[in-house]
């Protein structure tokens, strides 16, 4: 049985758990805890260790999706989760500019863990105040060769498209090297 691993990372409340929940064939194994800090109470629960989702592609091929905790105080999990990944998705909250700096820092951290392909998915594009993917590329100084794609983490098709774009990036890298 071949297992392939993709990591979904991003700042607090970017929608990582939803992203995985939306596409996983199993109920996501979530390690959530109730949020106690007043300043972080934009949602009730947060991931403290990881989210885990699974997609069976064939009898001999399974895709694992790991979601990282968004809060810095749980970042000791990041490197563990990054081990052996095929690539990673950096999920942005397109309506909360206060998280962009953190998103850029997370992106740099993951790039330093493993030099694997990644893409940036701009979540919450269905909301009126969402910054466009083009603006987010400039705001976060994403290099031109990295894809920045729109995303709605509650929409299965959109999530599927993000994963496809990441896989295309992996394939493009393989083509370049062949």
């Amino acid at each position: 049985m071949q297992v392939v691993k993709i990591v979904v990372t991003g700042p607090f409340s970017a929608g990582k758990t939803q992203f995985i929940q939306c596409i996983s064939e199993i109920d996501v194994v979530a390690t959530e805890k109730r949020i106690s800090r007043a300043e972080e109470r934009i949602k009730d629960h947060t991931t403290v260790a990881m989210d885990f989702g699974r997609i069976t592609v064939a009898e001999d091929l399974v895709l694992y999706l790991f979601g990282t905790p968004g809060q810095r105080r749980f970042d000791f999990m990041w490197e563990i989760l990054a081990e052996g990944m095929l690539g990673f998705v950096v999920l942005l909250d397109s309506v909360r500019p206060e998280t962009f700096r953190e998103a850029r820092s997370i992106l740099d951290t993951f790039r330093s863990y493993a030099s694997v392909p990644y893409i940036v998915a701009t979540n919450k594009q269905d909301l009126e105040d969402a910054w466009t993917p083009e603006d987010l590329r400039i705001a976060l100084r994403i290099p031109p060769e990295i894809k920045v794609v729109p995303c709605v983490a509650t929409d299965r098709e959109s999530v599927q498209q993000v994963l496809l774009e990441l896989l295309f990036s992996v394939l493009e890298l393989m083509d370049e090297e062949d």
Binding site: Q2, V4, L86, G87, D108, R111, E177
Partner: peptide, 21 residues
């Protein structure tokens, strides 16, 4: 890790076969 603005490493080929992707 965790230092924003640091230069990225060159990407390397993932350890899976093309057929799997």
């Amino acid at each position: 890790p965790g230092v924003p603005g640091q230069a990225p490493m060159a990407m390397r080929r993932p350890a899976v076969k093309r057929g799997v992707v």
